[in-house]
Amino acid sequence: MASQGTKRSYEQMETDGERQNATEIRASVGKMIGGIGRFYIQMCTELKLSDYEGRLIQNSLTIERMVLSAFDERRNKYLEEHPSAGKDPKKTGGPIYRRVNGKWMRELILYDKEEIRRIWRQANNGDDATAGLTHMMIWHSNLNDATYQRTRALVRTGMDPRMCSLMQGSTLPRRSGAAGAAVKGVGTMVMELVRMIKRGINDRNFWRGENGRKTRIAYERMCNILKGKFQTAAQKAMMDQVRESRNPGNAEFEDLTFLARSALILRGSVAHKSCLPACVYGPAVASGYDFEREGYSLVGIDPFRLLQNSQVYSLIRPNENPAHKSQLVWMACHSAAFEDLRVLSFIKGTKVLPRGKLSTRGVQIASNENMETMESSTLELRSRYWAIRTRSGGNTNQQRASAGQISIQPTFSVQRNLPFDRTTIMAAFNGNTEGRTSDMRTEIIRMMESARPEDVSFQGRGVFELSDEKAASPIVPSFDMSNEGSYFFGDNAEEYDN
């Protein structure tokens, strides 16, 4: 783990906690998980779902989305002020799938948001429990990260689609708070800032007046979040320049895209947490497990152990491969979309394939898809080993990566060399080191050039047997250095459309 220093740990961010010791953190995270579980059980009762239907990941996603929508204050306010045809701002819903006479049927349900809020609060001892809501947002974000390569979004903001390893959390809503900021990748933060800068260039009043003052505060806050992700002084200094700019424009845009590229080699610290679907927490609570009393951590053995003992089902389209669908969801559960496939294969105990080789589309089923041909199958979400999630980018030494994705962002704290394609990355730096950030740029390029592919990161860190909950005997895996390590390699994943 990167030293926490003055930073709060993510469990504290996750639970809005002030400084807590490890036991208190485990208890408050457990409380959050228990609340999600209780809410899910109650919703299944309301909807009269069978046990099997309640364990269907598509039903879980609909129920999670309903509660997130019920608590989305800004959108609710907007919907009330701008009524649109056929949208009731006070209601929320989605597809629920039921097994009827041996076939899967889709039923569109509609609930009062007020009623959903009441059920959620009741499951969370009367609190709004925003930490639990954020947790579900991060699960949705991790699922998107594993399912889609955001080529269009990258290109629109002047970045290269091969930089997708920097895009963790790119679909997280803005209201996801400190826990959300911690899991956002460098590219995601750059993209958010670039969008602001572009608006400022096109709209003279963007930075002016009372609204402009708020915009400015948001801009500086985002700059500080991004600065905190960088691990070298030169990158941090460049972020200070971007933040202090009187009138952010093209120079800042250039600096930010430069920094994003540099992060492929001088990786930023991005938190990883295993956020599971509500249909995993519900049955665990129903079986009598007391998360608050037992304590829970999002970055240790607990999620692995929970998945070892969970039964989750998914709808499967006619030509999809259930094992591939399982891999997709497994990666999402562990926030591992940008991790090295060699490491993932070792931990999972079966070969993890790149996205383009998977015969599976996303987990969600569109409303126009034919239910007649839908089957369902068990998702295999178990693992051979477990490993500690990392909050750091690993040290800054790398190795060759593949054509589709030119770097990785480690999820697990496991000893290995970190793949990246130096030639491709360095070719993108057209040696432009003039301007006010020239000395920093020169320094950053120097550090990137001296990074050695064969150097090892996370020295001495290994994986653990599932029986080793105290992480007492690390097993340090050895990897084939020459092997392909990137998930979005030469990829044809669908595009994420909101």
Rank of each mutant, 00 (worst) to 15 (best):
E14G: 10
N21H: 13
E24R: 01
I25W: 02
R26A: 03
S28A: 07
S28G: 14
G30L: 00
M32L: 11
G37M: 11
R38C: 10
M43E: 09
S50Y: 01
E53W: 06
G54I: 01
M66K: 12
V67H: 12
L68F: 05
A70T: 15
D72A: 14
L79N: 09
H82F: 13
S84Q: 14
K87W: 06
K91R: 15
G94P: 02
R106L: 05
E114M: 06
I116H: 07
R118M: 15
I119V: 11
G132C: 11
G132Q: 07
M136R: 00
L143G: 01
D160Q: 08
R162A: 05
S165D: 04
L166V: 10
G169E: 06
R175Y: 02
R175I: 02
A179I: 01
A181E: 03
V183W: 03
V186W: 07
V190E: 09
G212Y: 08
G212M: 07
K214F: 12
K214N: 09
R216N: 06
Y219N: 10
K227W: 05
G228C: 14
A233E: 03
A237N: 05
M238W: 02
A251K: 02
D255T: 03
R261V: 06
R267P: 04
D290P: 15
F291L: 08
G300Y: 02
P303W: 05
L307V: 13
A332C: 02
C333K: 00
A336L: 05
F338Q: 01
L341A: 02
R342P: 01
K348F: 08
V363Q: 02
I365R: 04
T373G: 08
M374S: 03
L381F: 02
R382L: 05
Y385T: 09
T390S: 15
T396Y: 01
Q399D: 11
Q405N: 03
F412A: 01
T423P: 14
T423L: 05
T423S: 13
N432G: 15
R436M: 08
R446E: 07
P453A: 14
F458D: 05
Q459W: 14
R461K: 15
I475R: 07
F479Q: 08
M481A: 04
S486P: 13
F489K: 05
E494S: 03
